[in-house]
Design a protein around this nucleic acid. Structure first.
Length: 439
RNA sequence: CCAGGGGUGGCAGAGUGGUCAAUUGCACCUGGCUGUAAACCAGGCGCCCUUGUGGCUGCGCAGGUUCGAAUCCUGCCCCCUGGA
């Protein structure tokens, strides 16, 4: 029921064109999974996305694990029935949530840290030291609260302390995550409840959710994590990979992807790639920190991908800026998932082949042009920037819906063109054409 | 006419002798967002410049008290509420 086949390889790069068959449909690669974390694409229906060419969607295990929501899904017979869709689905393991609640907040960084001031490094190291206690005891990834204010000074009130936290609902201004060798204990950011997630639990839940593709439970490190900590986390992730496989016990309905970690460190990435490659995963996810700059992403992929079986699919977790997509495909990535198309839309940023545009800017209030002059989406056919801008500025939810529709259409269309370019052996040329306009 | 309350930066609304160029919210401007704690977050938002523990102007208007006033006093103008 599952099959991955490479159809064409680009002659001038490692880009490849493939087909991934799942019980719920075919995915043409390279492709982007549209993110539907909590079971919906924010601001867009699955049907709409499907019409634009979306072939697979990504739901998150953590959000169905908390509050035991997966038990409700179970009663419906799985995510496909619960969401009432018959399209290919993947579920992320919840590992990334541990990161974004832990190091992500502590280091105030994402998967790629663009800036790297000394002060930040010192703070990061201090935090990491806390987290590298000997293993039998829990590792305190972080137990620290933010008290910095707008001006970098402390003020009388505590309102400003609150402003450092995003979003506002934190648990007593603290984020608490403890990583044990057998799993992770952490506080549910939505309600402060203590939760425990492990490779076994994650896979159990993912089996219940029943997505076509599921991911191993991993520990994600940050771009500011030291070599020592990254290595430690890597060992743990590898142990967890084995546990995930044990728990998974292949079915015909699902396949499991193993995740390569190792941060920005060459030997760790290679070690991880070799290790994960030695296990019977259907495909691979490339996860974790991808370095301190966009160039590092390429390096990491360059270290990793050569060690992975060529005929297995590779998914680059969470990446999705336009240049990164091209660079990753060029290195041999087949699948992506990213919140950017939908999140940027909610934040007022629209994709165009001229680059991204901030549609909230007042200069668009009188602009009669479509968001993207060449876009074939319904929004660009029907509405000028002016209308979208007006709706966004008035905080009308419809503005967000329109822009989300455009962005999702646009990015999926880009992937279509990328596939076409690989097929026609034009990938590099197409890449340069787009990147030069964007950056 | 009498009694009471009030006039603060684009708006709303704090502050009632120095720590006030003035809390906060909205609006506005600029950035950021990469396996979604995100329809979010950060910064700016009187004028000037050599961009600084800098200069100037400033809390209805005009005076005054004081080392020092958005804050106290006097007069004037305006607004709101109740009563004739």
């Amino acid at each position: 029921m599952f099959r991955f086949k490479i159809l064409t390889k680009d002659k001038r790069s490692k880009a490849r064109l493939g087909i991934l068959k799942t019980p719920h449909g075919i995915i043409h690669t390279p492709n982007l999974a549209i993110v539907a974390t909590k079971g919906s694409i924010r601001g867009l229906s699955f049907e709409q996305a499907r019409k634009f060419g979306a072939e697979i969607f990504m739901v998150n295990t953590f959000h169905f694990f908390r509050q035991e929501r997966y038990k409700i899904v179970q009663k419906f017979g799985g995510l496909h029935k619960f969401l009432n869709i018959n399209y290919p689905l993947m579920t992320d393991s919840g590992g990334f949530q541990i990161f974004s609640l832990g190091f992500g907040m502590e280091h105030k960084v994402g998967k790629v840290a663009d800036i790297f001031p000394e002060e930040k490094q010192i703070n990061a190291d201090r935090a990491v030291e806390q987290s590298t206690l000997s293993d039998p005891k829990p590792n305190f990834v972080l137990v620290r609260s933010y008290t910095q204010t707008k001006n970098g000074q402390n003020r009388k009130g505590n309102k400003s302390e609150q402003s450092m936290l995003s979003p506002k609902k934190s648990v007593n201004n603290k984020n608490l995550v403890k990583v044990y060798d057998d799993g992770v204990e952490f506080i549910d950011p939505y309600n402060g409840q203590k939760l425990f997630l492990s490779p076994e639990i994650s896979i159990k839940v993912q089996k219940i959710l029943g997505a076509d593709i599921i991911f191993a439970f991993d520990e994600c490190t940050s771009p500011l994590s030291t070599y020592e900590y990254t290595k430690k986390a890597l060992k743990r992730t590898h142990q967890w990979a084995i546990k995930c496989l044990d728990e998974f016990s292949t079915t015909k309905k699902q396949v499991l992807f193993g995740i390569v970690q190792g941060g920005e460190y060459e030997d760790l990435r290679k070690e991880s790639a070799k290790f994960v490659n030695s296990l019977p995963f259907f495909g691979f996810g490339i996860g974790g920190s991808l370095g301190k700059s966009k160039k590092d992403i390429i390096k990491v992929l360059n270290w990793t991908l050569p060690y992975l079986y060529e005929n297995k699919p590779r998914h680059l977790l969470g990446i999705g800026e336009i240049d990164d997509i091209f660079n990753a495909i060029e290195q041999g990535i087949d699948l992506f998932d990213c919140v950017i198309p939908t999140r940027w839309a909610r934040h007022g940023t629209g994709f165009s082949f001229q680059g991204r545009i901030n549609l909230k800017s007042s200069k668009y209030l009188t602009d009669r042009k479509p968001i993207d002059l060449k876009c074939q989406c319904q929004i660009c056919q029907k509405y000028p920037r002016s209308y979208i801008c007006h709706l966004l500025r008035e905080k009308e939810i419809y503005g967000i819906m329109l822009l989300t529709e455009h962005n999702v259409f646009w990015i999926l269309n880009l992937f279509k063109q990328i596939r076409k370019s690989i097929k026609e052996n034009n990938f590099k040329k197409f890449k340069n054409l787009i990147i030069n306009k964007w950056y």
